[in-house]
């Protein structure tokens, strides 16, 4: 029932949000007001664009995440079979961790973990 279940929960979310939005699209009273549809910025008109190139700091961490998460995915199958493979798996993962740790140390030393 797993695959149907996925569809079911997807549909549930869809229904809840869809119903709520449709409901409050028709039921509440509407009022027209020019100021109402302005962007909120503490009551002052916005100055300049808001969709511009943004600080690289955020992306840097996304890239870091990508590197480490891809490697973390390899850990999952290892974690499951750890109990059976015992020592071999342990030594293998130790090597893996050392490499991963070195990568982290490298990033640390290169100040990549420092927020700019």
């Amino acid at each position: 029932m797993n695959s149907e279940g996925l569809i079911l929960f997807f549909l549930l979310g869809l229904t809840l949000v869809g119903f709520a939005i449709v409901f409050s699209y028709f039921i509440p009273r509407k009022s027209e007001n020019l100021q109402k549809y302005e962007t909120y910025e503490c009551g002052i008109p916005t100055y300049g664009l808001s969709w511009i190139q943004f600080n690289v700091g955020y992306y840097l961490f996304a890239i870091m995440f990508l590197i480490f998460d891809v490697e973390a995915v390899f850990l999952f199958p290892w974690a499951v079979v750890m109990k059976e493979l015992k020592m071999v798996a342990f030594i293998e993962i130790l090597i893996f961790f050392v490499i991963l740790g070195l990568g982290l140390m490298y990033a640390w030393k290169k100040q990549a973990l420092k927020w700019e």
Partner: peptide
């Protein structure tokens, strides 16, 4: 909250 109007910002 259900009875509140949904506001769609112009931009």
């Amino acid at each position: 909250l259900l009875m509140k109007e949904l506001i769609m910002i112009k931009n």
